[in-house]
């Protein structure tokens, strides 16, 4: 099969394209409007003394704020951990062929998504009113250890239970969606190779489901950063509470809100960057959506 006109790419001159690009006057108008608005914003932020930038600078790295920041971080990380582990467990239970097991998971999700988080936090905090002592033993049989509920469920523990168990219910649905997004043929191929269901889940199905699970989990984590401020209802404190405690004393409400917002934005930015890394990790082998991204290629293939 040879080209009758001779070798390809030779003979005729290349005709470069030198066209006048399409103009977009609308875009220039939009850019001008945005530029003016941005300039106005910067101007007022700098010149309006009531922003109290000196107060912001004074409290940004103060001990109570950093303490609150630390609590926000600890609560977010630990409750997301509980939420993710619990969510994976619930999602797997939800898919169980045993109706009792899947029903139990569905009931949990229904209960924890269906009641206000504040109510759940208060419930865990006042568990002692319901059960003054908690014990470990054989059901309806002898007890081995027994402790005062108020000793075991500290304020901090109540925060983690409230935030983590509630998050697990939401994460369960996210994970379930991820599992459902993986073609059934994948688990079948794994089974045909002699893998057990749990091996197939761990090695084949979950890694592929992660692609779908990670973005909403990033959402949940960023949302959790701010949801932790609800722990104030049971007397615990974190970033926003610390800021408010200070402004209750010095009446500098706006500057302290700016302090809190600053740290929330820092944490959110870090999480967004982290999410990018995780997404790249689980995007391995999948055709990239973004042009120019080279997730797929390895060792110079294609």
């Amino acid at each position: 099969m040879t080209d009758p006109s001779g070798a390809v790419g030779s003979g005729r001159e290349r005709q470069e394209i030198q066209a006048v690009p399409v103009r977009h006057p609308g875009r220039w108008v939009a850019v001008a409007v945005l530029a003016v608005l941005a300039a106005m914003l910067v101007h007022t932020v700098v010149t309006n003394e009531r922003f109290g930038w000196d107060v912001v600078g004074q409290y940004l790295f103060s001990a109570p704020i950093l303490n609150g920041l630390r609590n926000t971080l600890i609560l977010t990380v630990l409750s997301m951990l509980i939420g993710i582990v619990g969510g994976v467990g619930l999602a797997v239970m939800r898919q169980s062929p045993n109706p009792i097991v899947s029903g139990a998971a569905a009931t949990y999700i229904w209960l924890f998504r269906g009641t206000p988080l504040i109510a759940q936090l208060l419930f865990w905090n006042f568990l002692a009113a319901l059960y003054p002592r908690l014990s470990l033993g054989i059901p309806f049989g002898p007890e081995f250890v027994s402790v005062d509920t108020n000793v075991l469920i500290t304020q901090f523990a109540a925060c983690l239970l409230g935030l983590g168990l509630n998050e697990a219910a939401y994460m369960a649905e996210i994970v379930r969606g991820g599992l459902l997004s993986v073609d059934r043929g994948q688990a079948e191929a794994a089974g045909a190779l002699g893998m057990t269901r749990s091996q197939a889940l761990r090695r084949i199905v979950l890694p592929q489901a992660m692609r779908v699970i990670v973005p909403p989990t990033g959402n949940e984590t960023i949302s959790m950063l701010k949801t932790t401020s609800l722990v104030v209802v049971i007397g615990y404190f974190e970033l926003l509470t610390s800021a408010q405690r200070i402004s209750n004393q010095n009446f500098q409400v706006i500057p302290l809100l700016i302090v809190a917002a600053f740290w929330y934005l820092v944490l959110t930015s870090l999480l967004t960057i982290g999410q990018g890394f995780v997404e790249r990790r689980y995007g391995r082998g999948f055709v990239p959506d973004r042009p120019g991204s080279r997730l797929l290629t390895k060792a110079g293939t294609t």
């Binding site: 079948e188 191929a189 084949i204 890694p207 082998g285 999948f286």
Partner: peptide
């Protein structure tokens, strides 16, 4: 061993 019509290779 089993070979499927739609391959079912592990894409990741």
């Amino acid at each position: 061993g089993m070979v499927f019509q739609r391959f079912n290779l592990f894409p990741h």
